[in-house]
Nucleic acid binder design. Structure first.
Lengths: 199, 199
DNA sequence: CGACACATGTAACACGTTACATGATTTG
DNA sequence: CAAATCATGTAACGTGTTACATGTGTCG
């Protein structure tokens, strides 16, 4: 969805061709999210199919241009108007991982948290290093980078918070006793009614 | 990827059947990320195909159980061991939206930022309200909720930051002059070499 | 000439979402 | 009985990722 609308936004500034769109997209996100060229062409195909953009002929150099349609402009401005809601966002893998880690016995949650923390911290340093490379007038790239910085900082704060929480829990419920690694057997939870016939 | 590993983590606690897996998955994420049942079955099929889990017969009530394999356990612990990197994460739609909004003329960026801010603030309030509903001993759900809170707070801070940045830019480069909404025509950017033959 | 960037496309595959089909059991 | 819940699955569709095929122009 982001690519589709991103390309529409670029096309709104005038006809573009595939390779050019990819370059402009990446320049705005500072190649933070590299975009496969193939995807640009398939997305352009879909935009055409959905009536949001149209092929607009080739220039003297053979570049295949696309032009945004009126429907495309409506779609684009609808995108700008409505906020991104949580429902639009994919499940956060890290959150799920920790939710599972604190549940499954035999997992060293604290180690998981600390590995992740170290990794995120390294990424944070990369971002601040990248920020020096970004041109002063390149607002788009700067905002994207700062977004990553803010998110990474929040993640680190959350991880610290998790560690404290887990420590607190492990104090209350003491020795988890290092089991023989795997507990297989009868399921602990089994709510449900009877059922027999199927299909 | 999160679902696959999430189910593996649940299966690591003993054999489960589809419907049960969905219930346990959602209880851990506090139904923050509702999981379609159908997806559980297709994912179980893929786990089977990839040798990470196996059907383990039916019980007297007709429930089709699955069991994690050794390969599945290795995969699961590899997942816990390696941190989720930025490359694993999908592109942030909001970041892309703002990067585009500050670039495309004729878009009221400040309005976009403020709408999003209001929306995220509402979500933040929902989360804190939900947090009161979470049981004291349900650490997994609490951590997930707090993750959402931390992320939302970071987003709001970033949005405020964006607004300040944009205001600063609009001072330097003054009246953007409300153009007739759309600028169509010759592309402004056109780097590239000549090319003629294709296919 | 050979490597590389430019440029357009296709095919295969993985994953997620929604909707649908089917049937049993429980509860009001 | 009717509606809701439990339970298992399939089909269709959208999107994203990777790899491949193909060819031109530039530069060392």
């Amino acid at each position: 969805m982001s690519i589709k609308h991103g390309l529409l936004a670029l096309l709104d500034q005038g006809p573009r061709y595939g390779y050019q769109l990819r370059a402009e997209f990446e320049s705005r996100t500072g190649s933070t999210w590299p975009l496969n060229v193939g995807q640009v062409y398939t997305t352009l195909g879909r935009l055409d199919r959905d009536g949001l953009a149209q092929p607009d002929g080739e220039d003297d150099e053979g570049h295949v241009f696309y032009r945004i349609t009126d429907a495309g402009r409506r779609e684009l401005h609808a995108w700008f108007d409505e906020p991104v809601s949580r429902a639009d966002r994919p499940r956060d893998e890290l959150a799920i991982k920790l939710a599972m880690a604190v549940t499954v016995p035999g997992v060293d949650v604290v180690a998981v948290v600390q590995h992740q923390r170290a990794h995120t911290l390294r990424m944070l340093q990369d971002y601040t290093r990248l920020k020096m490379r970004a041109a002063d007038d390149d607002l788009a790239w700067q905002l994207v980078l700062e977004n990553l910085v803010f998110q990474a900082e929040a993640e680190i704060r959350w991880l610290d918070h998790c560690e404290a929480r887990i420590a607190r829990r492990d104090l209350t419920a003491p020795a988890p006793a290092p089991l023989p690694a795997v507990s297989d057997g009868a399921p602990a939870v089994r709510g449900g009614r009877t059922r027999k016939g199927r299909r």
